[in-house]
Amino acid sequence: MKFLADLHIHTISSGHAYSTVLENARAAADKGLEMIAITDHGPAMPGGPHIYHFGNLRILPEELFGVRILKGVEANIIDRAGTLDLPADRLAPLDIVLAGLHTICSPCGSVEENTEMLVNAIKNPWVDVIVHPGNPEYLIDAEAVVKAAVEYDVAIEINNSSLKLSRAGSRPYCEKILALAKEYKAKIIVGTDSHFALSIGNFSEAIALLEKYEIDPSAILNTSIASVESHLARRSNRKRQKV
Rank of each mutant, 00 (worst) to 15 (best):
L4E: 09
S13L: 11
Y18T: 09
S19V: 07
N24I: 09
N24V: 03
A27K: 00
A27I: 01
G32A: 03
A37E: 04
G42Q: 11
A44Q: 10
G47K: 14
F54G: 01
N56D: 12
I59G: 05
L60S: 03
P61H: 00
P61N: 04
R68E: 10
V73S: 03
I77V: 14
A81I: 02
A92L: 09
A92Y: 00
G100T: 11
I104H: 10
I104C: 04
S106T: 15
C108W: 00
E112Q: 14
E113H: 07
N114P: 06
N114R: 12
N120E: 12
P125V: 13
W126K: 02
V129A: 06
I130Y: 06
Y138T: 05
L139Y: 07
V146T: 07
K147P: 12
V154L: 10
S162A: 15
S166P: 02
G169W: 12
R171G: 04
I177W: 01
A186T: 13
I188C: 08
I189W: 00
T192L: 08
T192S: 13
L198G: 09
L198H: 13
N202S: 07
A208I: 08
Y213L: 12
E214T: 13
E214C: 07
D216A: 15
D216Q: 13
A219Q: 14
I220L: 06
T223L: 05
T223W: 08
E229Q: 14
E229I: 02
H231C: 06
R234D: 11
R235Y: 11
S236C: 05
R240S: 14
Q241Y: 07
